[in-house]
Simulated scan of single mutants.
Amino acid sequence: MATKVILGDILFDPAPRQKLKFNNPRVIAKLDIPGAPPVNQDMGEDETTLAWDGILVGADAYRKAIQIESLKDAGQVIQLIVTGFPELCKKVRIRSFPWDLVRQDRVEYSIELVAEIPPPVVSQVITTYAAAPSDDVEQASSPAPSGNTYVVKEGDTLWDLAVQRCGDGTRWREIADANGIMDPTTLQIGQEIVIPF
Rank of each mutant, 00 (worst) to 15 (best):
P133E: 05
V107H: 07
A132G: 08
R165I: 00
A176H: 08
L113R: 05
A61T: 04
E138T: 15
Q164M: 10
I6G: 03
P133S: 11
P16A: 04
V125C: 05
T157D: 02
V194F: 06
R103M: 09
S134Q: 14
I78V: 13
G155V: 02
I28A: 06
F197A: 03
L88A: 09
V27S: 12
A140V: 15
V5Q: 02
Q188D: 13
C166E: 10
V137Q: 13
R103G: 02
E108H: 07
A15K: 09
I6A: 01
V151T: 15
L88G: 01
T157P: 00
K21I: 09
D13S: 14
A36R: 01
E112Y: 00
A162C: 05
V152R: 01
G169R: 08
L158N: 02
I193E: 01
R93V: 11
V57L: 11
L158A: 02
K30W: 05
P98E: 03
S141I: 14
R63K: 14
V107G: 06
V77W: 04
P86W: 01
F22T: 08
R171H: 09
P25K: 07
G84M: 05
K64L: 14
Q139F: 12
K19A: 14
D160I: 04
D13G: 00
P118Q: 13
A178C: 07
I175P: 07
P14N: 05
K4T: 10
I189F: 08
R95K: 14
K30D: 12
E116I: 14
S146M: 12
D136S: 15
A162Y: 04
R165E: 10
I55S: 12
A15E: 10
S110Y: 01
P143D: 15
A15N: 09
Q139K: 14
R103Y: 06
D168M: 10
I6R: 11
L31N: 14
G155F: 07
L161I: 07
G147I: 03
D168N: 15
V102D: 12
W159L: 05
P118T: 11
V27G: 02
L80C: 02
T157M: 02
A59M: 10
T3K: 07
D73K: 15
V27Q: 13
E45P: 09
P133C: 07
Y62R: 09
D105W: 03
R17Y: 02
V5Y: 08
L31V: 15
G167D: 08
R165T: 05
G35E: 10
Y109P: 07
W159H: 06
G44T: 00
Q164P: 00
Q41M: 12
V27F: 10
M43N: 09
V102P: 01
P98M: 02
F85D: 05
P98K: 04
L56P: 00
I94F: 01
L101Y: 09
P118I: 09
V194Y: 07
T127S: 10
D60Y: 11
D100V: 13
K30S: 14
P16N: 03
D73G: 12
M1I: 09
A74K: 13
V27W: 09
Y62V: 01
G58M: 04
N148F: 09
D105K: 07
S142C: 05
Q104C: 00
E69P: 00
M182F: 13
F12C: 04
A59W: 07
A51D: 01
L31Y: 13
S134I: 12
D135N: 12
G58Y: 07
N23G: 00
L113C: 06
N40C: 08
S141T: 14
L31H: 15
D32G: 04
A131N: 14
L20Y: 00
A176M: 11
